[in-house]
Design a protein around this nucleic acid. Structure first.
Lengths: 213, 213, 213, 213
DNA sequence: TATGAATGAGGGTTCATTCAT
DNA sequence: TATGAATGAACCCTCATTCAT
C-alpha cells in the first residue's frame, strides 16, 4: 500500500483520501473512543493510529478532553444526519423506523451516547460536558418531531415524544447485547431490527385501529 | 478530600458493632464504581472512603480488578434479588412490573450493567470479565421465566423472553435520562415508572383482547 | 497427609522432624536465600514456606535483616564444619582437597559467600554486616592452617595461605558455571572436582619434586 | 539525596557538548548497578544520578529490566574489548595475562558477572536473561582462543579452554576480596595481579619444561 | 506461642501535557 | 506544520513492620 507505481508525470491529482491531519486525527480518535472508554485511549494511542506523533495531536487539539468533545459532537451529528435522512424519506412511518433500526444495528458498535458521557464526565470541563450533551439533545430532539407528526396524523397514539425517541433508541441497543458467550438475542441485525420495531410499534399503536399497518 | 489517617499500624481494638472491613470496602467501592467509571476510581479513593489505607484495601482484595469484579457481581445479585422478590409477589403481572420499575427508578443511579462491563473490559482478566457477565446473565435469565409464564397464561402475547427482559430494562433506563439542564423526561420516578410500564405493556399485549387490563 | 489413623494410645513419641519453629524458619529461610537474592525473598515467602504466618516469623526474628544475618552465619558455619571435617581426615592433603571439592560441588547451589554479602549489604546494619563477614572470615581462616601445615611439611610450595584458600574456593565455583544453554564446563560434579583440584594442585606444587604425587 | 529538579517540561535547549541523555542514563545506571544489587537501585536513583526525572528514564528505557539488560550487555562488551585488546598485544602470553590482571584489578569494582545475573534473574524476562548470558558467554569464549593458541604452541599444557578462562577470571576476583576490616589479601592491585598470575601460570605449565619462562 | 489486621513508605510504570526546534 | 525530548502527577501494587488479641 505504500508504493504507487506507474505514476504519470505532472502534478499529482488531489487525492481525496489524503485527509488533512486534523480530520485524520478526529477519524481515528472516533474509532478508538467508540470501542474503548475515554480513559483507555491514550493520546499516544490516537497518535499511533494516525501515524503521527503525540505532539502533532496536541498541535490540533489542545487537550485530550477537547479532542474527545469534538469527537463526540461529530459523532452525534453523524448519527443525527444519518437518522434524519432516513426519517425524511417518503415512506410509511413504520418503514422509516425500520430503516433507521437496521442502519443503527448494522454499525455493530454500541452507540450508547449516555455511556460516552458518563464515562468521561469527570475529565471534561463543564463547558465541554454541556457541549456534548447539547449535541446529544439536538440529536434526540430532531427525531421527536417525527413522532409528533405521526401522532398528529393519527398514525400512532399520543405519546410524550421525548420518551418515544429515547425508548426507541434504548430498545435498539438491546440488539447489540452480547452475553458471556458472545451470543446476541437475535439471529442477525436485520432480525433484531424487525423484532424490535415490531414490538415498539405495538406500543405506539395499541389503541389505534390500524387496518393498513 | 484529604483525610488524616494517623492510625498506628497493627490490629485495631475490636469494636463490637463495627462492620467487618472487607464489607466496608465493598460497600464503599460499590458507591464509587456506581457513580464513576472504573478508571476514575483509584484504590486510594476507595481507601479514603473507608477511612483505611490503600494497603488495607489490598489486604482484602488482591487487585483493583478483583475488587471491581466482586463489587459488580454483588451488585448484580442485589439487583436480581430485589427484582425477583417483587416479581414473586402475588399480584397481577403488570402490577409487579410496575413495582419493579418504581424500585428500579427510585435508586436514581444508573444501573446500566452493560456500561459497567464495557467500561472496565480492558482491565479485567478473561475470567473476571466472564464472571461478571455470568452474573449479569443470571440476573436477566432469572427474570425471563416470568415473561414465559405470563405468555403461557395468555396474559401477554408470545415474545422472545430474553428480548422482553432486555427491552424492559432498557426502557427503564430512559427514566434516568437527564439532558444538559439536568431535566428528566418524566416529572418523577413514579410517573416515569407508570408511563414506561404503560408503554411496555402495550407492546406486550397489543394482540390480546384484555377486557380487564 | 492430615489424618493419622490407628494411633496407639498414650503420649505420642517425640517426632524428630517436629522441629522447633525457630529452626524451621531458619531452615526454610536458608533454602530461599540460597536460591534467591535478599530482596527477592519476602518475609511472606519465608512464612509461607514454613506454613506459619508472617507475624510468627517476626516473633522469632525481629527484622528481616536479622533473620538473614542468622541464616548466613549458620550457613558459613555449616560450610566450615563440613569442610573442616573433611580436611581433618587422615589422608593425603591432595585427597582431602578433592573430597572437599566433591562435597562442595555436589550441593549444586552456588555457595558464593561474597554474593550473599554484597547482595544485602545495603539492608544490613553495620553490626550485622560485620557479623556475617566475621563468620565468613572464620570459615576461610580455619582452612588456612591446613595449607600452612602442608607448606611446613614441604608438600606444597610456600604460598600466602589466605590466597590459597580463596583461590581454592573461587576455582571451585567455576564448577557451577552454567552458560545460557544451562551447560556446565565439566561433565559432572565429580569430573569438575577432579579437574579443578588437578589444576589447583599444579599451582601449589610446581616447584616441588614430588615423586609420589 | 534530594536534588531540586525544577526544570520545566518540554525540550531543553540544545547544548553542543552535552552527552546524549540515553548514554548519560546508561552510564549512571552502570555505576549504580555495579555497586549495588538490581533491587537496591531504583529508577528514581538512576534518574537522580542523571539529574533527570524518572519519566525521562522511561522515555529511553521501557522498563527497569530493559535498562539493566542494556547496561549489563554493554558492561560485558566493555570488559571483553578491554581484555581482547590486551590479549592481542605482541608480548609473551604470560605478560599479556598479567596485563589483563592488572587492568582488571585496578578497576576495583567487583566484575563478578555471575553475580549480576544471579541477582536479577527473577526480574528479567527469559529473553533478557538469555541476552545477558549470551554476552557473558561471548566474553568468555573470545578469550578461550588465546589459551588454545598457547596450548598449540606448547607454551602451556593442554587444558580445557573454558575452564582456563573461568579459572583465570575467578582467581582474579580473589584480588578484590575484602574482609570485615576491609583488608585485602594482597598489598596492592599490582601485587595481587602478580601473585595470582604467578600461581595461575604454574597451574598452566606444571608439566612443561620452560627454561625461558 | 501465634496470628489477623493494619500501616507507611516506597517502587515501577503510565500519561497528559509542554516547549525548543 | 510537526516533532523529539522532557516533566509532574498520579496510580497500582508490594513489603517490612507493628500491635491487639
Amino acid at each position: 500500500m505504500e508504493k504507487q507505481t506507474n505514476r504519470s508525470p505532472g502534478r499529482p491529482p488531489h487525492y481525496k483520501d489524503k485527509q488533512p491531519t486534523d480530520e485524520l486525527i478526529l477519524f481515528n480518535a472516533s474509532q478508538l473512543f467508540l470501542e474503548n472508554s475515554y480513559q483507555d485511549v491514550s493520546m499516544d494511542d490516537v497518535a499511533k493510529a494516525c501515524n503521527v506523533t503525540k505532539a502533532s495531536v496536541y498541535y490540533y487539539y489542545k487537550t485530550k478532553s477537547e479532542l474527545y468533545t469534538e469527537t463526540m459532537i461529530r459523532l452525534m451529528y453523524r448519527i443525527q444526519n444519518m437518522t434524519l435522512q432516513l426519517l425524511n424519506e417518503d415512506k410509511p412511518f413504520r418503514t422509516r423506523l425500520l430503516n433507521v433500526a437496521e442502519a443503527y444495528l448494522k454499525v455493530s458498535v454500541d452507540l450508547d451516547t449516555e455511556r460516552f458521557i458518563h464515562n468521561a464526565k469527570n475529565m471534561l470541563s463543564k463547558e465541554q460536558l454541556t457541549a456534548i450533551q447539547k449535541a446529544e439533545e439536538a440529536m434526540y430532539t430532531s427525531m421527536e418531531e417525527f413522532f409528533q407528526e405521526a401522532t398528529d396524523q393519527g398514525i400512532i397514539s399520543p405519546i410524550n415524544p421525548a420518551f418515544a425517541v429515547h425508548g426507541y433508541i434504548s430498545l435498539l441497543n438491546t440488539g447489540n447485547y452480547k452475553n458471556a458467550d458472545k451470543q446476541t438475542i437475535f439471529s442477525s441485525p436485520q432480525e433484531a431490527a424487525k423484532q424490535i420495531v415490531d414490538f415498539f410499534w405495538k406500543g405506539l399503536t395499541k389503541d389505534i385501529q390500524d387496518p393498513q399497518n
